[in-house]
Design a protein around this nucleic acid. Structure first.
Lengths: 146, 146
DNA sequence: ATAAATTCAGAGTAAAACATCTGATATACA
DNA sequence: TGTATATCAGATGTTTTACTCTGAATTTAT
């Protein structure tokens, strides 16, 4: 069950993190990604194309082709990816869905949610893909490491 | 766009808040609710039935029938409603969707998200429907008040 | 009793999200 | 230059969520 982000977005985060574990410049095929991450082949293809279009990845066709990061891993934040796939809608709407809720007209949790939302936003902005990859490199992450 | 909770859940929160604005024991019809809140008639009917089944509301058929709170407004927390409609899945899964992520095996934002999640949970548990209703009672909330 | 207003219950429809299929296009390398 | 292996692109299928329709059953008031 996805919480805040769509499945596409989660897949994107996982795939980009995987790419960041590879030597710089090395291309990785969709086949390898779907095999290691358990993401549907064609679905992932679409998502990666999207990230190429947005400039976060680069791609190359043909044998030895594949995908690689379009920027240094430390320059890609989690928010870059979230924004590219899901947009930044979670930063604006009332968390409880009250249509009239706004800063001049707050619902009972407006302020409280505002703090949490800002915290989550900072979490996404302050973490980059290099850090994500480092956390995933531990021996327990057999699925991703090998 | 819904953020964390389903549309059903948002509608439920809005409807129950509206009911809390009424004098204790007074029944309110689906017709009035959908008119004032802009929620689809039959869809809301289903949601309210569900809340009756879960014991949060009571209902009565026939003319002068309708729905009312099943408990005192201050005894119904936001979490009661969220749990009744969406379950409490948001308290368990990795926010970025990493399958291997756990407390023994955390992703790079695991701890950070854990704090935010706990904060959001507390926000839902510590706010009751009476407080929600009070916030909605301000003159700006024409749509809900009148 | 009868009529009107309401919830209740189950099936049906629509739209969005998730996923697959098929064929074209590019590229490396034998 | 041909063949294999990739991505690219568009159409199609599936599942879940959102929403609607229809006809009961219940209750109030005339």
């Amino acid at each position: 069950m996805s919480i805040i982000f769509s499945r596409q977005c989660e897949y994107a985060l996982q795939a980009v993190t995987y790419l960041a574990l590879k030597p710089v410049g090395e291309k990785t095929s969709i086949k390898e990604l779907t095999k290691k991450l358990g993401i549907p082949y064609h679905f992932l293809g679409k998502i990666l194309q999207d990230l190429v279009y947005k400039g976060l990845l680069i791609s190359q066709k043909g044998p030895t082709g594949g995908f690689a990061l379009g920027l240094p891993a430390r320059d890609i934040t989690l928010f870059h990816i979230v924004e590219a796939i899901d947009g930044s809608g979670f930063t604006t709407n009332c968390v409880l869905g009250f249509p009239e809720c706004s800063s001049t007209n707050p619902c009972a949790v407006h302020e409280s949610w505002g703090r949490h939302r800002e915290g989550i936003y900072q979490m996404l902005v302050n973490r980059n893909i290099a850090e994500m990859a480092r956390a995933m490199k531990k021996p327990e992450y057999a699925a991703i490491r090998k």
